[in-house]
Computed example of a mutant assay.
Amino acid sequence: MHGHHHRFSDSPFAGLRGGFRGPGPRGRGPGGRGRGADSAPPVDRAEVAGWFAGRLPDGWFTGPVELTIDRDEITVVGTLPEPSAGEGDPAAARAGRIARFREETRSQRMGIADAAQERYGRSVAWGAACGDARELFTSLSVPVMTRLRQPERLVLDTLVDAGVARSRSDALAWAVRLVGEHAESWLGELRDAMAAVEEVRARGPRSE
């Protein structure tokens, strides 16, 4: 499975004329399917960070990993030390360092992912950064059920008709990513406001 980047260019339509690429390949998990109402209960972020800090081998990354946690998946991205390119191209050297890390750590990462899924009920996606290079190795594609009225459907159909997306599903994913890119400050405030609520929920009784 090939890694992919989760970045938009300055123009939201740039590079998308040939069709939206959609979510990345499925990560490790039960068939790559969403759990819907059976999603795993909330987890304490500090506890997850501590668990990974204890499980990850020393020397893999230059510092603490970047964790992104939702109901279905934990994404772990670590920073690798930059290689000395010498007379070579620095960008190629960084890409090579990421590729080497991906290949050499695959079996260990799979073992850690299996243990994390057993503990937290979520699949694990891995990624690495080196300098300004960043690659996500795997990412879970989760279908999301939603009901849209005609005005919203027309927005999606316009994106499809314009060649921005291949289908309504792709158009919806594109729209969500666009909102996330351009409303990051507002989403950040919302996440901060919800953090206390999530911590309280995580301490509450969990259904089996």
Rank of each mutant, 00 (worst) to 15 (best):
M1L: 08
G3R: 15
H4A: 08
H4D: 06
H4Q: 05
H5R: 13
R7H: 15
R7Y: 14
R7A: 11
F8Q: 10
P12E: 02
L16D: 02
R17M: 09
G19W: 12
R21W: 11
R21C: 07
P23V: 13
P23L: 10
G24M: 07
P25A: 13
R26S: 09
R26N: 12
G27K: 01
G29S: 15
G31Y: 05
G32E: 09
G34A: 15
G34N: 03
G34I: 09
R35C: 02
G36V: 07
G36K: 05
A37M: 06
A40M: 10
P42E: 12
P42A: 08
A46W: 04
A46R: 14
V48Q: 00
A49D: 12
W51P: 00
W51R: 05
G54T: 10
L56P: 01
L56T: 11
D58F: 10
D58M: 03
D58R: 13
G59N: 01
G63M: 03
E66M: 10
T68A: 10
D70V: 05
D72F: 10
T75E: 08
G78W: 03
L80E: 01
E87P: 00
E87Q: 07
A92C: 08
A93R: 08
R94F: 06
A95S: 10
A95N: 12
G96W: 01
G96L: 07
G96C: 04
I98Y: 03
F101T: 00
F101L: 00
R102C: 02
E103Y: 03
R106A: 15
R106S: 03
S107P: 09
G111H: 10
I112N: 00
A113L: 04
A113Y: 01
D114K: 15
A116N: 04
R119E: 11
Y120I: 06
Y120A: 04
A125P: 03
W126F: 07
G127Y: 06
A129L: 06
D132L: 06
D132F: 08
A133G: 03
R134V: 10
L136C: 14
T138G: 07
S139L: 14
S141N: 13
V142T: 09
P143G: 04
P143C: 13
V144N: 09
R147E: 12
R147A: 08
L148H: 15
E152N: 15
E152C: 14
R153N: 15
L154C: 08
D157C: 04
T158P: 00
V160R: 03
A162M: 05
S167D: 05
R168K: 15
S169Y: 02
S169N: 08
D170T: 02
D170F: 06
D170Y: 00
A171Q: 02
L172R: 06
A173T: 13
W174S: 12
A175V: 11
R177I: 03
L178P: 11
H182C: 13
H182E: 13
S185Y: 12
W186P: 00
G188S: 11
A193M: 11
M194Q: 15
A195S: 14
E199K: 14
R201F: 09
R203S: 14
P205R: 13
E208S: 15
